[in-house]
Design a protein around this nucleic acid. Structure first.
Length: 275
DNA sequence: CTTATGGCCTGTCAGC
DNA sequence: TGCTGACAGGCCATAA
């Protein structure tokens, strides 16, 4: 999503108007909270954990997609042939926020389940905001290593899967990627985090990097309505080894893939390959 | 303090 | 076909 938006948004584009249609998201947001963005130039977009960070001249807009959030763009005005061929702006159900730029480009935030978050903050707050400061290291950063996992899990009585999915420990590892990583590292999701060995920690760090890198390359995992900014689908679901594979044969040992709800989330594993 | 659970929402799918 | 219930990639308030 970040890459898709980066292709569309150009530094210097000015926000003409912010149109909030529904502020009833994870945290309520009101039009007046977003008003100061109007008139500001767009600077850049980046990602921190599962948040998109829109950087403008004087402030930031954080956006978490939750489970079903997505952005698409709309060029409502054809510069070459203005009046007669003007494209109508077509909006859809669950379009909650529209950012209108002065060059007639619009980006539209759509989120059926409204688990997403729109949060305007100042540039100074990026590191100190309660939602930001609790976040663990990026899994693709140097800070995230086998040593890190081993040290940080010593006192934990939670399952390794719950530990990995806790964004305070390491960010970006969601349910699918936790299942897939644990399979590749041959570690059972139910294993107590504090009992993970140093060797398992090293392997886990390596496979998490490779799983996430591969998923990013493939544009993510699409099941139902998760889309990229261009409306396309990711293809990571085609290579899933355990997630959503209940009752199918393990690709390594042909044992049937197990399923249970662990820490409230659907969990898949191979009882023979994973110890 | 840590960990587990239920709930937020709407849409989709399988099964009847 | 239409209905119902289960379930969904995240997170947080609350309970234990």
């Amino acid at each position: 999503m970040c890459r898709g938006l980066d292709q569309i948004l150009r530094p210097g584009m000015r926000v003409e108007r912010i149109e909030l249609r529904c502020g009833d998201l994870r945290e309520p947001v009101q039009s007046k909270d977003l008003q100061s963005l109007e008139g500001q130039k767009f600077v850049a977009i980046r990602r921190r954990a599962k948040y998109l960070v829109f950087e403008f001249q004087n402030s930031l807009l954080l956006n978490h997609l939750g489970m079903t959030g997505s952005w698409r763009s709309h060029q409502s005005f054809d510069q070459e042939t203005p009046e007669p061929n003007q494209k109508l702006l077509v909006t859809r159900k669950h379009d909650h926020l529209l950012i209108h730029f002065s060059n007639k480009m619009k980006i539209i935030y759509n989120d059926p389940r409204r688990f997403g978050l729109i949060l305007p903050i100042s540039k100074e707050e990026e590191m100190t905001h309660p939602r930001m400061k609790i976040l663990g290291p990026e899994p693709l950063s140097a800070e995230f290593s086998g040593e890190f996992i081993f040290q940080e899990t010593r006192a934990s009585k939670a399952s390794i899967k719950a530990w990995l999915m806790n964004q305070n420990h390491v960010v970006g590892v969601g349910n699918i990627y936790a299942c897939e990583s644990l399979f590749q590292a041959r570690v059972r999701p139910q294993k107590q985090a504090g009992k993970i060995t140093r060797k398992e920690s090293d392997l886990l760090a390596r496979v998490i990097r490779s799983v996430l890198t591969s998923a990013i390359e493939k544009g993510g995992t699409t099941f139902r309505d998760f889309r990229q900014a261009d409306g396309g689908y990711g293809t990571y679901q085609n290579g899933l080894l355990v997630y959503n594979q209940k009752g199918k044969e393990c690709r390594i040992c042909h044992e049937l893939i197990q399923h249970q709800v662990l820490a409230g989330r659907s969990t898949y594993w191979c009882k023979k390959c994973q110890r």
